[in-house]
Write a protein that binds this DNA or RNA. Structure first.
Lengths: 160, 160
DNA sequence: GATGGGGCTTCCCATAGTGGGAAGGTCAAG
DNA sequence: CTTGACCTTCCCACTATGGGAAGCCCCATC
């Protein structure tokens, strides 16, 4: 199987196939006399595994670990679970961070007239809102982080 | 004011100050005879603006727009709002994506014994689960995307 | 005046993955 | 043999950010 066929069969681009080989995520592929890389059905399975893992947002490093565990019949599922759980933790942190940003920005946008006039709470916040602002009471850090990022309406919970 | 002082006063690293100048986010700073960059209090205000905008996750490109609008006394708040709203939309998309990943992975991890045995639904999913899986009923696409990833206690609301 | 330490300059490299593209070899069909 | 699709390697780009080296500058202290 050529690199193009392996790519089509796995959903991993040829470019990435070469890259993964280069960084050691994949073993060096066999070559034809002309220098073309050759792949087997087994390789395609590995590639699908990698692709799926990438789709779940796992880093190359973690995928290396998982592929190693996958191939190891003596593995403990605990090791696999730990890798997954670490990634979930990171995802949670990222989601929280993005949600805080989103909430703050949405609040500001909601408060903005959005008309022809120049006055704008968004700019007002950016130009110093973080320090000098104390609108209602003591609530500092308007990173509310409470909302869940979706669009399901209810419970604004914005402290501003 | 030297670059180090401007950095300390604004919270933007000296490295980033030079970078922002290089890419045109900041105008070329004046120089002393020795070639040192010189900053004013006004510059520091701009830098704080930029820093705050970066904290909200805005891209350099969008910050360029916002700084331009900020300086433009003829601006319409509608333009500012649009930029902010675009960013919120992107944040929402990203949050949704990450949440879907998180939920899927958490489901799999929850189903994993996490002991010394090698059997593991996580690996099972990665090795082909995306296509061949149909565990309980019709529930395809385990990207539930419903939970909100946060840790804010109450209302778990996870669909799993 | 000399010296030392810390700050400034520019320039290069690295990150994490991915895509784009050029220059050149290969393979298969016509 | 020609043509076109495919493969190879190599370089560059992206987003922002940090690290570090080599070399100049400024100020304080002796």
């Amino acid at each position: 199987m050529n690199i193009g066929q392996a790519s089509a069969a796995s959903g991993v681009s040829a470019k990435m196939l070469r890259y993964y080989e280069e960084i050691g995520l994949l073993p060096k592929a066999a070559r034809t006399e002309a220098g073309y890389r050759v792949y087997s059905g087994t390789d395609v399975n590995t590639l699908r595994f990698i692709r799926r893992a990438r789709d779940l947002g796992l880093s190359i490093e973690r995928i290396k670990l998982l592929v190693g565990l996958w191939r190891d019949r003596e593995r403990s599922s605990a090791d696999v679970k730990r890798v997954a759980q670490e990634h979930v933790t990171e995802l949670d942190a990222k989601i929280l961070e993005l949600t805080a940003m989103r909430d703050t920005l949405q609040e500001l946008a909601d408060a903005c007239h959005g008309d022809h006039r120049p006055d704008c709470p968004i700019l007002h916040d950016l130009e110093g809102g973080a320090q000098a602002k104390a609108p209602t009471a003591k609530m500092t850090k308007h990173v509310s982080a409470g909302g869940r990022g979706g669009k399901s309406g209810a419970v604004p919970c914005h402290t501003v």
